[in-house]
């Protein structure tokens, strides 16, 4: 069964008919040819498919495309501003926060979404005071980024990159 869907992806509006079984991730990758979000598990277990949906980080393999009519989706490819990388992306480059690069677009989108959550005052499981402003130390970053696996083990550099981006 197919259904019509209109959404904006990386600033461009697309209208398409999708199989109702199609996930956001597969619609992006197989239908729109936007392979910036990666498929690592297809089950919400790795974070490689993380995109921003209406500004919030989300696992695109866990959402059905038809449920996102009208959504604004941003992938790591859409975070750039012209030739300029997003500050989080630039920090990943500067700190070598990547190796094979397969988890990287998901890590980047997750970090961008996470920094906004911190600004909005969301506590995490390691926040001592649930009411106070979050002090984004290494433990907070590690906790908040733990949905994004990196089998290459670039974690130390990713944390350093996010710390720098958070300071900027």
């Amino acid at each position: 069964m197919e259904a019509d869907l209109t959404w904006r992806v990386d600033g461009v509006e697309h209208t398409l008919a999708v199989d109702t079984r199609t996930t956001v991730l597969d619609a992006l990758r197989d239908r729109l040819g936007n392979t910036s979000p990666k498929k690592g598990c297809d089950h919400g277990q790795c974070g490689a498919c993380t995109v921003l949906v209406d500004g919030r980080r989300q696992l695109s393999c866990l959402g059905l495309a038809v449920a996102h009519d009208g959504s604004e989706i941003t992938t790591a490819a859409g975070l750039v501003d012209g030739d300029e990388l997003h500050p989080v992306q630039q920090a990943f480059v500067d700190h070598d926060g990547l190796q094979c690069g397969y988890c990287t677009p998901g890590q980047v989108c997750s970090a961008v979404g996470m920094l906004d959550e911190v600004k909005a005052g969301h506590p995490s499981a390691v926040s001592d005071d649930l009411e106070a402003d979050v002090e984004l130390d290494e433990d907070e970053i590690r906790e908040r980024m733990s949905g994004n696996l990196c089998r290459c083990g670039a974690y130390s550099n990713i944390v350093a990159a996010i710390e720098e981006a958070a300071r900027a």
Partner: peptide
């Protein structure tokens, strides 16, 4: 720095599939 870092942080480096 890694020469392919830009392609990887934007997700534009193409993997097999």
């Amino acid at each position: 720095g890694r020469v392919d870092a830009r392609a990887k942080v934007t997700g534009t480096a193409p993997y097999a599939y």
